[in-house]
Amino acid sequence: MTEQVLSIRNLTIDYVGGDSNFRAVKDVSFDIAPGEFFGLAGESGCGKSTIAFAVSRLHRPPALIRSGSEILVGGRNVLDLDDEALRSFRWREVAMVFQSAMNSLNPVLTIADQFYDVLRAHSQVTREQARTRAAELLKLVDISPDRLSAYPHQCSGGMRQRIVIAICLALNPRLLIMDEPTTALDVVVQREILQRIDVLRKKLGFAVLFITHDLGLMVQVSDRIGIMLEGELVEVNDAITIYNAPQHPYTRRLWASMPRLHGEQIKPEANL
């Protein structure tokens, strides 16, 4: 068996409160293989983003990862890393595209400077080298290198999203986490970005942890899918199986609540 890029074992996360704790993630375990496109689906509040943040240790109090949980990336337990190790781990091994990625660029820095910021923090580069590398990366996401001198507000939402993805790929991470990366974009732009990611991961070999509540989209792009309900991972299967033969009743209910574009329409009373 080949080594997994990400192995999550018995992950339990609480949001610690004054009177009582809220268990957001309940004993979740799954693996992502090298180059795999893994989807994590579920409705708001099911804990999917909490997992995404925990994998890169970006969770903040009151979130608390309970002991006994393991997040293994390249054989190391992320939860044991000290600050220095964590700093080199982020971006280099796991990079993350946030939900409002369009707004995660610094508005007062040019695109070139945003690349330099990441590259300088993680490797020895000069401004010139960083600019050359940034130009290469922008080409990957189909943006002209002329844009390096632009500011974020001069780029469209879809472009900003692609720039964030390019920055995430700057240090060749082995895992790219995308937390609802396209919810703010319209369908055409969304499709273009996801196809671009799909091409890139096949070319560069990184794995993807993709989080969304759009099950149709998820089946279309993912190799395997995990379905979450109230903090628990209720079903993990091949995308095809999730679509054609969902095992868990919740997965079936999710499908029953999605209006169809063609063929027989779902029944109005199908409700969660």
Partner: peptide, 24 residues
């Protein structure tokens, strides 16, 4: 617009990488 709507019946895995993008 219709081609870009997420459709579980047209999986990326079933087409060579990038071909659908070109068609769009």
């Amino acid at each position: 617009l219709l081609a870009a709507v997420p459709d579980p019946d047209r999986r990326f895995a079933d087409t060579p990488p990038g071909t659908e993008l070109e068609s769009i």
